[in-house]
Amino acid sequence: MFIKFISLLLFFTINTFCFADNKPHKIIFLGDSLTEGYGVSFDESFPRLIENKLKTKFKDLTIVNAGSSGSTSASAVKRVKWLIKSKPTILFIALGANDGLRGLNLKQTEKNLQDAISLATSNNIKVILAGVRLPSNYGVKFRKQFEDIYINLAKNNSLTFIPYLLKDVAGIKELNQSDRIHPNKEGHKVIFKTVLPYIEKLL
């Protein structure tokens, strides 16, 4: 009862004392099945949760879910080229998991992502990079190499960096679908909580 009261109060406060932001914002989520929300409904995917959360605060906010199941980093540049036509202000990149899962050459993955980031930043688009990790069975060495790609990219490009998109989700039975790879509805809520602060910071 008490908690409910507090949250009501907070809600009230935000709405009354903060003026709504009228600047145009367009955020594009570039990703794979994790972003697309494979196996959950569109309204349950984390980009949609973020959109629902922010659209009261930011009047002119558009969020595009450009998640594409099965896609690898190789498609990144091409897709960014297509997406910048719609003039986004923020590009959220969460790609590469499929590269790792298929055991592709990681140098190539890093290069693909770097090309996409460069294309976006050269168009004055703010980039948020989300780090992805591989399941434990892929072996210690390979997992480390894979993880490092994202750390290096973030550092070299001074990007807003979410170290691990699936933080507190991966490996937890209750938050994943029965394939133990794709987050379920509850998992997407956790991702939403992980990602939201970084987005808000950039807006």
Partner: peptide, 24 residues
């Protein structure tokens, strides 16, 4: 999607590939 390797079941744990966060 990948070539196959057969190993004996008793030796899986030696690989330490089956732990938290593994998909199998």
């Amino acid at each position: 999607m990948a070539p196959r390797v057969y190993i004996g079941l008793p030796y899986v744990k030696d690989t330490e590939l089956l732990k938290f966060g593994s998909v199998a």
